[in-house]
Amino acid sequence: MDLASISPVLLLASLMVAATPILLAALGELVVERSGVLNLGVEGMMITGAICGFAAAVETGSPFAGFVAAALGGAVLSLLFAGLTQVALANQVASGLALTLFGLGLSALMGQGYVGVKPPPTPRLDIPVLGDIPILGPILFGHDVMVYVGLGLCAAIWAMLKYTRAGLVLRAVGENHDAAHALGYKVVRVRVMAILFGGACAGLGGAYISLIRVPQWTEGMTAGAGWIALALVVFASWKAGRVLLGAWLFGGVTVLQLNLQAAGVAIPVEYLSMSPYLITILVLVIMSADRSRAPGSLGRIFHATG
């Protein structure tokens, strides 16, 4: 065992990378849940995004095209969920599960020709001056562009929910869909757009895993990241800033346990691998005491009678 081999700077730098996929997916789900819809299909959309992005990046040779395809793939899959819950008025829990089961199968089917293939590398941003700052440089400024997209998205969603009219409408729909409907807001339209956005974000998160973090394609490679993202939204009390905090926490736990595995701690690898899931449960327990901040209409079916 050699704990001294773990470098805190590298640890923090890889924390930012490990946090990005769940950050992206959780931000998307945050918007969906703030509109009053509970989409349990994040895992399915992530894995679909992972393979769509992987396939597109391999075929075109461009990681950028990969991420675009991943967002599209996630959004198209979420459209199925939107159709089920907003048009066919199906139970959201069951529909979300269906999405996950379907997405896992679909991704396995699509990914058959891509096992063992290497994707084109995504370049790191070399920010001149900032990247050369000791310690802070490698932690904050030595990453690929998607890390910053995640951070930017977090700020944008925070500002959108807090300061813009669109954010206000979204929240109104989520808090009380009947009142929002009476005010003339298009509840279903707002929700469908939120669901599509959530799907695109989950797709990006998935592609980040398959294109940058791992980077290769294996069946079921998201390994519960989508569910952790769902837990993150609860943890964050439906607030964008806290999602970032939560993502860093989970990223930190993941990176730390991987480092401990590499350092050869006397605990079997399997028990260390459990830790992100156990921490998720622990955090859920701590945060669940306060349910008051959940959007009022979360998970309820809206059917305009008037």
Binding site: L80, L97, A98, F102, G105, L106, A108, L109
Partner: peptide, 13 residues
């Protein structure tokens, strides 16, 4: 094999 998985998922949909 994955095609069957998709098939089963579709059924629920």
């Amino acid at each position: 094999a994955a095609a069957i998985q998709v098939f089963q998922g579709m059924l629920l949909f």
